[in-house]
Amino acid sequence: MSKSKSLSPVWWPLIGLAVLVAVNLALNPAFLNVTVLDGRLYGLPIDILNQGARGLVLALGMTLVIATGGVDLSVGSVMAAAGALAAVLLAEGHGLAVALTAGLGVGLLAGAANGLLVARFGIQPIVATLILMVVGRGAAQLMTNGEVVVIKNDAFAFVGNGTVFGFPFAPLLAIALFVAAQLFLRRTASGLFIEAVGDNETAARFAGLGAARVKGLVYVICGLCAGLAGLMAAANIRAADSYRMGENMELDAIFAVVVGGTALTGGRFLLLGSFIGALLLQTLTTTMYNLGVPPAVAPVPKAVLILVVCLLQSEHARRWAVSLVKGGKK
């Protein structure tokens, strides 16, 4: 147990994920079965990846924002706005490129607005992004007239439903983004810049870092991720539901990041941890379906597992648990 101090925080959500898969396998041996159907992979693990792709993309952007000590509450609403605009443009007969650009553009603009408020005007991130959380959904409802807009464009549906060599496209895209982000942030000094701003903004600025610019940029990236997630969500169900799309997704993204070992206080961030955290959340949801937990009860086991992983993540809680075990032996 003494080694636990040097253990990477990534292990704790991974252990949670492993336990979850083990429980599923014990109660339903077919849980990990993957077959090929109509030339595409078919099975619960594929569903988890496919449905979890949006959460993964959101968690990526959220990790960077949280690393600077901020938070972005607007991602769910930005998802709805991006998906709604893309759906409306497609319904008006515009092509795929226009829809995708517009959706990502919504994300970019939203991120820039958040970045401006937080980095330039020094407004608290919770308050600054809360504004767009409200406005974004309102804009989405305005664009769609409060109706569900159905998408008939097959090329667009590919973003959320397509397969590459039988493997679903959405998770592939999410994984590619994570790898690209990891390489870029860790092979260059940019990751360090973000951590420096999160650790101590004043010190970072005195060290000659454009702290405000770094902060602004992470919100732009987070906004772009939210825009992409919105496109994926709309493509997945071939419809933009401006009322419900992305609802509470901001909380899921924050959960994924925190469970993955990135502290809300900023500083050190772990992209791999967020990746596993997001997968853990989606696996939890699927587990409830797989085990037939009644929907009214389902939030309880979910909350318990998240609590356990959060406790494992806490140095104090671990030490306390160890001392309890040792104390018991005496």
């Binding site: 077919a30 078919y42 449905q51 379906y289």
Partner: peptide, 16 residues
Amino acid sequence: FRRSGGKEVMEAFLKK
């Protein structure tokens, strides 16, 4: 009551 929810749950039901 969501379209995405209906799809996600049905996917799991079909596997199960």
